[in-house]
Nucleic acid binder design. Structure first.
Lengths: 203, 203
DNA sequence: TACAGTTTGGTACGTTTGTTCCGCTTTGTC
DNA sequence: GACAAAGCGGAACAAACGTACCAAACTGTA
C-alpha cells in the first residue's frame, strides 16, 4: 500500500468517527463517509471489504490512539509524585479536555464498548484497551499510596468511565469544577487514606 | 386507544429493545421490528410516526422500567440497615442479575445515554433517570454512614455504570464474584469509613 | 342493530443502501 | 521508458429501506 493510499484510508476512518459522534452509528453509510472524507464513493469499498469492517477499524483506531494518549499522560505525571489533590485535578482536567475537544471520538469509544458486546473480534481488542487503563490506574493508585492498587484501579477506571458518560450527556459548562474534580478528589483521597475495610464487620 | 392496541404498541417497543441489544441500533428497521414482534409491517408506522420516535420511545420505556426496578430494590433494602458488606453484595447481585437476565435492555440503556448526546428531547428524560439513580445512591451512602452522601453518591453511580459496561463486554462467568463484589465492597467500605480528606494536604 | 372510531394487513412507491464493475491514471521497480 | 501493481472515480445494480395508502375487520357506544 502506497503512502498516499494509507492517508486516504485513515481519513476515511476519521470521517467515520466524526459521523458516529455527530449522528450515531446509524449515520455511517458508505456515501456519508465518502462525502465527509471528501472522496468518491468507491474509495470506501476499495479500502474496506464491508461496512462492518469500516466501522470496526474506525473504532479500533480511536481506541489505540486513546490508549497512547493516556499512557503519555500518566508517564509524564508519574515521576513527579504529586499529592492527591493534584492527581485528581490532573485527571479531571484530562477527562474534561478529552470530552470538550473531541466528544465525537469519546462517544465513538463508548459505542465500541457496546459494539464489542456483539462482536467477538472487537472484544479481544477491548480487553487490551481495558487492561491498559487498569495498568495506568494501578500506577496512579500506587503513587498515592493505595494498599490494594489493583482493586482500587478497578474502581477508578469504572468511575471515570461513568463520569465521562455523564459528562457527554450533560450540557453543563462547569461539569469539571462541579462534578468531575470533587468526585475524583474524594475518590483519590479515600484511596490514599488507605483505610482498611474495618467497617466490613459492622452490622 | 384500545387495550389490545396498547399491548401491540408495547410489544413493538420491546421488540425494538431486543434488536438493539442483539444487533445494535443499526438493525432497527421497520421490517425487522415488525418481524421480531410478529406483526405486519404497517403496524410500525401505525403506532409510531417515524423510526426515530420508535427508537426514542423504546429507550424511554427501558429507562422508566429500570428506574422503577431500582427504586423497588432500594426501598426494600433500606429499612433493614444492612452492614457494608451486605450492601455491596446486594448491589453487586442486582447489577449482575440485570446484566445476566436482560443484557439487551442494559445495552439499549447505554445506547440511550449516547443517543441523548445528540437528541435534546432524550436528554431531559435522561436527567430524570440520572437523578433517580443519584437519589437512591445517596440514600444508600447515608445508610452506611457517609459524611458526604451526595458526593459519594456521584462516585457510586458512576462506578456502577462503569462496572456494568465492563461486565456487558466481558464473557466472564465469574464477573460478579471476581470483580463486581470486591470492587463495590471496597468502595462502600471506604465510604462507610468516612475518612475525611486528610490526605489532601499531603504532598 | 347501527354507527363512528380504531385497528389490521397487504400492497405499492420512490429513495437510499451496500456492493460491483470497468476504463483510466498514478506510482514504484527494473 | 516499460511494466505491473495500486489507486482512482463514475456509473450501475439489486436489495432493503421508510413511508403512504386503502379496503376490510374489529371494537365500544347508543
Amino acid at each position: 500500500m502506497y503512502q498516499k493510499g494509507e492517508r486516504r484510508r485513515e481519513e476515511l476512518l476519521r470521517a467515520t468517527l466524526r459521523l458516529i459522534g455527530a449522528h450515531g452509528a446509524d449515520a455511517v453509510t458508505h456515501r456519508a463517509v465518502a462525502a465527509e472524507a471528501g472522496v468518491p464513493l468507491s474509495a470506501t469499498t476499495y479500502y474496506f471489504d464491508s461496512k462492518e469492517q469500516l466501522l470496526q477499524q474506525a473504532l479500533l483506531l480511536a481506541a489505540r490512539e486513546e490508549t497512547e494518549r493516556l499512557e503519555r499522560l500518566v508517564l509524564s505525571l508519574a515521576p513527579q509524585s504529586l499529592g492527591v489533590a493534584e492527581w485528581a485535578a490532573a485527571v479531571a482536567s484530562v477527562v474534561a479536555q478529552s470530552v470538550r475537544e473531541d466528544p465525537a471520538t469519546q462517544v465513538a469509544l463508548f459505542e465500541l464498548g457496546l459494539e464489542s458486546t456483539r462482536t467477538p473480534a472487537l472484544r479481544a481488542e477491548l480487553v487490551d484497551w481495558q487492561s491498559a487503563h487498569l495498568r495506568l490506574a494501578e500506577m496512579g493508585c500506587r503513587a498515592v499510596g493505595s494498599d490494594e492498587p489493583a482493586l482500587d484501579a478497578t474502581i477508578v477506571v469504572a468511575a471515570i468511565a461513568g463520569l465521562m458518560l455523564e459528562q457527554l450527556a450533560s450540557d453543563s459548562e462547569s461539569f469539571e469544577e462541579d462534578v468531575l474534580r470533587p468526585a475524583l478528589e474524594r475518590l483519590f483521597a479515600r484511596i490514599a487514606a488507605g483505610e482498611p475495610a474495618r467497617a466490613l464487620q459492622a452490622h
